[in-house]
């Protein structure tokens, strides 16, 4: 299909990955760590949106909520219940941290779906830091709360004794793979979705026959991406809860 497109319109070029580029907003020059870039802008927009929903939306503190407050309360209740169900009562005090992660990822994902937007969570640098922060927190918390008993997470005492060392190796590998899968899952899903969107959008410039199909494809993929945005935020959050549960209650 790509060859056909090229033959039809000659100079057609695909740059589905351009949307992921980090660049300065003001002036030219190298991107330093403090430079205000499109990353800064879209993260700031996320902060503004989160504030609008969760702070401005709830300012009336109504017993009978209006729509915005109702959405804020639903998100609160959803994450609160998730934390409570997965980690138990003693996990509740980590609820603000988990909610911060959830709301940031959710808003970044959805804001990234706006046309011309930059998706901060499609970058492995961002998701890796998120996942690594979770990994580090959970590991330190596990040792602080349980001491060396935290290592019991790797020693499956319900398995036959001969199998335990092998299982321990597997458990340890899986434990250290966690942050990798945790971060790549999120970044990969969003990047792939957005790239596919852009590819379909590129075909939309091609001829009368291909364009409608491509536009339908964009709509379909966009719908899928809306779903993926919510699901990936949910998956990241619930996995965080599961890891936190392991840290608080390491016994199998």
């Amino acid at each position: 299909m790509a060859g056909e497109a090229h033959s039809e319109s000659g100079g057609l070029e695909f740059h589905p990955l351009d949307q992921f580029e980090v660049h300065r907003i003001f002036g030219d020059g190298p991107v330093h760590w403090y430079t205000i870039t499109n990353v800064t802008m879209w993260m700031a927009i996320a902060v503004v949106c989160i504030t609008l929903l969760l702070v401005i939306g709830t300012r009336k503190r109504a017993v009978i909520p209006n729509r915005t407050q109702s959405v804020a309360e639903t998100l609160y209740g959803f994450v609160y219940k998730m934390v409570e169900d997965v980690t138990g009562k003693d996990g509740i005090k980590y609820f603000p941290y988990i909610f911060t992660l959830f709301i940031f990822i959710l808003f970044s994902n959805f804001l990234g779906l706006l046309p011309m937007a930059f998706t901060t969570t499609s970058h492995i640098a961002v998701t890796a830091i998120l996942a690594f922060a979770v990994f580090l927190t959970v590991t330190i918390l596990g040792f602080v709360k349980n001491g060396s008993a935290f290592l019991g997470l790797f020693w499956v005492s319900s398995a036959p004794l001969a199998l335990r060392p092998i299982l321990a190796v597997i458990e340890i590998i899986s434990y250290f793979v966690r942050p990798v899968s945790h971060s790549i899952r999120l970044a990969g899903n969003l990047m792939a979705g957005h790239a596919v969107l852009k590819v379909f959008a590129g075909f939309a410039q091609v001829g009368l026959i291909v364009a409608p199909i491509a536009i339908l494809g964009v709509v379909a993929i966009y719908a899928l991406e809306v779903l993926v945005s919510a699901i990936q935020a949910y998956v990241f959050t619930i996995l965080t809860c599961v890891y936190l549960k392991d840290a608080l209650h390491p016994s199998h």
Binding site: V31, M43, V47, L54, P96
Partner: peptide, 29 residues
Amino acid sequence: NQIFWLLVTLIVIYLILSRVALPRIGSVL
């Protein structure tokens, strides 16, 4: 650059949530 702004963003969100939004929603509920 990304990591720096991510950390700033997360801290800002955390402060807004833990100081204002979450206690308020919790008390309303």
